[in-house]
Design a protein around this nucleic acid. Structure first.
Lengths: 197, 197
DNA sequence: TTGCATACATACAGCCTGTATGTTAATTCA
DNA sequence: TGAATTAACATACAGGCTGTATGTATGCAA
């Protein structure tokens, strides 16, 4: 006789499995169609779970979105770190970091997720917190190092890093839409070099 | 006997009136609560019209939003032009324009409308078209003038203006959230000056 | 083994969007 | 100037989506 094959799994393993399936499905749908155009019924169908599971693990749709964005931010930080090369010139270091950032942002839909839907759904503050946790401080550190080397002590570093960071983001977005990465990189480099002269 | 007092109005006048009421109500609600959190029933109630009127004049909710954003972009351009002063130094002109932009962006909720919800709902391309029609080319022109005066012929002006424009936007957003306008302005000025040296 | 907590599954209520249809008044045209 | 047409709504409806409430089975701890 065929026994009732209920495969026995720990609660932790079950949770990990379903959250992972939800995260994967949600990510690819959010990336493909955007946040507003993606419904939870569609997500759970793709994830092969029920809405009950979704709302058990996440408080609401935005919470799931936050988890996806957080995961993505970590992946981006990881990719950048993997390609970042040590540079003697701090500005070279910043440019190399920017190159890595642009490359990481080329995975389809990622730029929209992180730079358009993210701020709209989670707010600018919610996003900056996620970025901070995922190590988005590197720009400010690089700027500070460059300023120190150039003996520029009176630069408004906090504001500069905010402004430049927005420029990097915008450049990344433009590049995904066909913009010329090299021209954007040189425009950023000329800004940085001018700053430190 | 009391005659039936149906005040007689032309169709054009009626349309102007209701679209204006819709625009006003939608603007203040979008600004206060954001696009996604504002429903059309709420809008028409505030405007004292019906949803039928709304969907008669606009194809959908996003279309009404587009009209609001367009109107707002024109108001911003107008405010900037009103305060812009002629400068001999093109960089001074850019800075003065930035000051006007930041001031215009301080009206509550406007920054969110134009810089957060706008791109998410209408797309980056939809927004840039609106900006373009409302005269958002002034940055590129100012940059070109400054570059000409400084004999900088090899700058990637298009990319620079895109990157800097993003920086201006981000600065405006930060200022509405308590950031120090003067520090942002000097950070932008030091970027521009360094660029043209 | 017994009781509680976890991890769901199902059902439901409320709201919202867009469309279809009906009605009244303005405008056009013969 | 009267009839036909169109504009400007108003009302009703269908479908879908979100979040919650409730039910159930299984893991886990005492």
């Amino acid at each position: 006789m065929q026994e009732k094959v209920t495969l026995r799994r720990s609660n932790k393993a079950r949770s990990q499995d379903t959250t992972r399936k939800l995260l994967d499905a949600a990510r690819s749908l959010f990336v493909e169609k955007g946040y507003a155009e993606t419904g939870t019924p569609e997500i759970v169908k793709a994830a092969e779970v029920t809405r009950g599971a979704l709302y058990h693990h996440y408080t609401d749709k935005a919470d799931l979105f936050r988890a996806v964005v957080t995961h993505e931010a970590e992946a981006i930080a990881h990719e950048i770190n993997a390609t970042a090369l040590e540079a003697t010139d701090p500005i070279d270091g910043l440019i190399s970091g920017a190159r890595g950032y642009f490359t990481a942002m080329q995975v389809p839909g990622r730029a929209r997720l992180m730079l358009v839907d993210g701020p709209a759904v989670l707010g600018a503050d919610g996003m900056s917190e996620i970025d901070r946790k995922a190590g988005g401080e590197s720009l400010k550190e690089g700027l500070a190092a460059a300023a120190a080397m150039a003996n520029k002590t009176d630069l408004p570093l906090d504001e500069l890093s905010v402004v430049l960071s927005a420029g990097f983001d915008r450049a990344a977005l433009e590049i995904t839409q066909g913009g010329d990465a090299n021209r954007f990189i040189s425009s950023l480099e000329v800004l940085l070099r001018g700053l430190m002269r």
